[in-house]
């Protein structure tokens, strides 16, 4: 077999022959992961639920006749009813709860997404640099991370709010600025282990520059882990924002978020239970969905499966 397979001419005709037979399509790790993910019912359900929620909060307010600021003077604290047109009822000020849950959802999801992107950006850059350079640089960079970790997070956010006033933009920054620490640690760990992989050495041996090694080999191989981590960070950030809003430090009236709505609802628990039920249900469903999806992604992308 070796005799037969290694004697053909080396010249271009080898390629021409090859082109007569169309190259077989390969199955990349991403495709593989997708096939595994498809078999994971919980993850798929999570993904489906997320799509539904995102679509709802995006187009829901456009179809809904009510405004999230202007009260319906005829209906204060009314339960959900088709008759009144308030699908989820109204709050104590007579504002349509459906509208407010949708608008709140936009804010919550946006905070989750943007803060995660901020932490992704800083974390990947920082972690990959520390991991790849290694040695003393890595040591100092990670000690810095440890030091920031030691700051009480809530205190830090509250301080920011007090000093700079409350605005949504600041919430994004505050949460992202703290959340990147985890991302940096994870990316650094992954980079460290990738750096010692034989294929990285192989790339260096075949003449790749440091930059090429990072761009072609390190980053594409980090994506799997990062994808998993992103899907688990988003719900975490949403939760943090909810907590801040619950404390009254988050978004300000008349804007709202799920956390703020839960806060309001909790105060009217006895008189208007629906005003707690709906935002809480949406919040919980979103968190579940992200976590299921994240777990599914982790299983699907985990190279140990191979």
């Amino acid at each position: 077999m070796t005799a037969e397979s290694t004697t053909p001419p080396r010249e271009p005709d080898a390629f021409e022959q090859a082109m007569d037979r169309r190259p077989v399509k390969g199955r990349s790790l991403w495709v593989d992961a997708w096939h595994r993910l498809k078999r994971n019912k919980a993850a798929l359900a999570g993904a489906g639920l997320l799509v539904v929620i995102v679509v709802m909060v995006t187009i829901g307010p456009m179809l809904n006749p009510w405004d999230h600021e202007i009260p319906d003077w005829d209906h204060y604290s009314t339960p959900p009813s088709l008759e009144t047109g308030h699908l989820m009822g109204t709050d104590a000020l007579g504002r349509d709860l459906f509208e407010r849950v949708m608008v709140g959802g936009r804010i919550s999801l946006l905070v989750g997404l943007v803060a995660t992107l901020v932490s992704l950006f800083i974390g990947v850059l920082y972690g990959a640099t520390a991991g790849y350079l290694g040695g003393r640089v890595d040591n100092w960079m990670m000690r810095a991370v440890d030091a920031i970790y030691a700051l009480p997070f809530m205190f830090f956010v509250i301080l920011l709010m007090v000093v700079f006033g409350r605005n949504i933009f600041l919430i994004f920054v505050a949460i992202g600025a703290v959340n990147w620490l985890d991302m940096a640690r994870i990316v650094r760990g992954q980079t460290l282990s990738l750096k010692n992989k034989a294929f990285i050495e192989a790339a260096r041996a075949s003449g790749a520059t440091e930059r090429q090694v990072i761009v072609r080999h390190i980053i594409p191989n980090l994506l799997g882990v990062v994808a998993v981590y992103v899907s688990l960070t988003i719900p975490q950030v949403i939760l943090v924002e909810s907590f801040l809003s619950f404390l009254g430090l988050g978004v300000q009236e008349p804007l709202t978020s799920w956390g703020a709505l839960v806060n309001e609802g909790a105060q009217e628990l006895e008189t208007a239970p629906w005003s707690l039920l709906f935002p809480a249900a949406f919040l919980a469903a979103t968190l579940f969905a992200f976590n299921f999806l994240g777990d599914g992604l982790r299983d699907a992308l985990d190279p140990r499966d191979r």
């Binding site: 290694t6 010249e11 080898a14 037979r21 190259p23 077989v24 790790l29």
Partner: peptide, 20 residues
């Protein structure tokens, strides 16, 4: 493709991934 053929890998497998 020529090189793959020389080492005994069918050149039409050029788009496959290592785990295959």
């Amino acid at each position: 493709a020529g090189m793959l053929k020389m080492v005994g890998i069918a050149p039409e497998l050029i788009n496959r991934y290592p785990h295959e």
